[in-house]
Design a protein around this nucleic acid. Structure first.
Lengths: 213, 213, 213, 213
DNA sequence: CATGAATGAGGGTTCATTCAT
DNA sequence: TATGAATGAACCCTCATTCAT
């Protein structure tokens, strides 16, 4: 039933947990936690049902491990935290970089699926809310706030609530992720999930509105 | 078990299907379709498990009926369609109205829950994608496009891809909905789901960036 | 699959838990807890697998309820506690009555199966040890002790450790129970589980040894 | 994982089957056959799960082998069979010896656990009933009968059904075994499993009742 | 129509057993 | 021979659905 030639047992031993986590993430994103059967996860990982339970205590545990091991590393925004060596760059340019960091993290890469999972399964896994708010949103908010304040002080931006800028730059990325993973497979919406440059141009639009007169 | 005095049978008999649909919608939004038990729906509607199956063929049918009966009316954007009697209003003002129409439909009201449902259950109910794209997004896109083109022609806006404006105005509303229904119950995020004026000010920001120099 | 004519649904509603407990007790005694499948219990009670879980939370719960509801009433020895109106009877006669009370409780009746269950499942259900010691053995020991002391004081018995008498009268009953339920179905042992009078004559033998010279 | 230094392979290779049998017996006695996992047995024997199946075809086979190899030797009563050189000893003394032989075999030694196993698992392993009746009870019965008849003929005992004496001497030993292995670990019962001399004094009591007037 | 006891297919989980190493 | 990762049959339990009352 499983192609042993393609999946030698010994070689895969240490890879199994990761393979199962990847398979589980894909399926949880695709079908939701409750609608995903344990056997499907195993099958996609190329193992049998029982093998899953060698590495994880339960299906719930799989998702908890996903949250803990896979999600729980900070969003890649540290580079902006202190603006090291960024004195020369305009605040507009810095904010644009933040928006693009979000884009590359969520739209490209498969972190986008994680976003869908967060919003879909948070009811039964509150740790997802913690992850999302404290590991993703809050750091972003801190970085954007500091850049916006810098921009206002340097006269680049007009006076502005930084939260408004966070939301304007970041929430469309979230919504785009969800579209790509939920709606597009059924009804492709090119005008939303258009491609690489769309979010860049979105950032331009917002930042244009931010400029001082 | 059910308080008969408070709910006379006669008067409620015809309301049953609607009451069940409302209960189901609430629970599907809150816990997801798969994780909601048929008995819970009946209980919330104040009837017994068996009664649910008098009015609906199955649990799936309940959601299909929700989509067909509840969702399947156009988004309240018709008023903008022809810009009847709107000649005098600025294009900026019109777009602001569109954004506020979205806000009042999705953030206030409980249509916001429907949005969560769309993104959560679309995998098993492709009709949700059809509903979302054709009944909600596409009309909005048409309206916004026409206003943007009008604004450009009238010299109010600089040249701009209309889709960019749809996305900039509309996607944050979607993301805000999801936040309110998914994340906030666990980790309140005032800076996102701040309240009425937030989205209004977001629209201002975007529209400012849209203005011709 | 289940003969509905013989088992009308409504009439049995209140009888179900008891029927399931009886079926479970029989099977637990016969095959042991771990080797009894939930479906077997249901089948013997004339219902389907799922019905069992309407009335009991789990298979373990079934046994716990058996212990709590069925076993947890004191052994029928109270009548001897105060020797009310027993002044006239000889101590020998009283002890003989205790032994016969054990016999009728354990060998006749189906309490004998319970004894087997106690010894078989106590490892996983320590409450069985509590039941056995505190509800059965300890009361018996108290009664027998008081009678033995009375007999010694009245010069009927020679000096004797009362515990020895408890054991001599009671332990053979226990062993006989176990034989009847465990061994006899496979290899009948008439010389042990002989019948009514055997334990009576056993008591005679022991009591004879107890008599003062 | 296993301390190879402490257990050189060579020396243990031939001991493996016995070590596994001992481990299995302990666990079957402690937790029952169905509730004992094969891996536990292997672990207690200091080998891996797979090794168990080199020496035994299945878990059931382990118990069958236990019965065949371990149990299937006669109970140590042969010495009484012909009363060789016992002419001079009183029948009372001989019976006392039989009781003490039971005690040392069952209460001391770990044969007591076997008794528990017999009564617990006989349903699924009828060979246990055969063993118990034919290898243990029947020989004892034969020996006791002959001694009792001898005692009656020699005028030491009053007329008496020999089976009654078997039961009176032997069943309390059985019950004591079960107590020690089943109940005592949870609720210690000193008054039953008191120690070496208790069964001796029990025998005295019974034999006293047996004496001719 | 309304009820809720009963059903049984389906999915999560365990563990005896196998087999490549 | 020894290992232990992997398997999958079997079991516990849930819950959508039915139907006698």
């Amino acid at each position: 039933m499983i192609d042993r030639a393609a999946f030698p047992i010994r070689r895969r031993k240490h890879a199994r947990p990761r393979e199962l986590l990847v398979a589980a993430l894909d399926l949880f994103v695709e079908k939701g936690f409750a609608a995903t059967r344990a056997e499907e996860i195993a099958e996609r990982a190329g193992v049998s049902k029982g093998t899953l339970y060698i590495y994880f205590h339960s299906k719930e545990d799989l998702l908890n491990d996903l949250i803990a091991q896979r999600f729980f590393r900070r969003f890649p925004l540290e580079s902006f935290a202190g603006h090291e060596g960024t004195e020369a760059r305009s605040s507009r340019e810095l904010l644009r970089s933040v928006a693009l960091a979000w884009r590359s993290a969520l739209v490209e890469g498969h972190a986008g699926g994680v976003v869908k999972l967060v919003f879909t399964e948070v009811h039964n896994f509150p740790a997802l809310a913690d992850f999302w708010v404290h590991q993703v949103l809050t750091p972003t908010r801190a970085v954007v706030s500091s850049i916006v304040e810098r921009g206002i002080q340097r006269g680049e931006f007009r006076a502005m609530d930084p939260d408004l800028v966070v939301n304007a730059l970041v929430l469309p990325v979230v919504a785009t992720c969800l579209h790509r993973h939920a709606i597009d497979p059924h009804v492709p919406c090119a005008f939303i999930t258009a491609g690489h440059e769309a979010l860049g141009r979105h950032a331009e639009l917002v930042l244009q509105g931010l400029m001082a007169a």
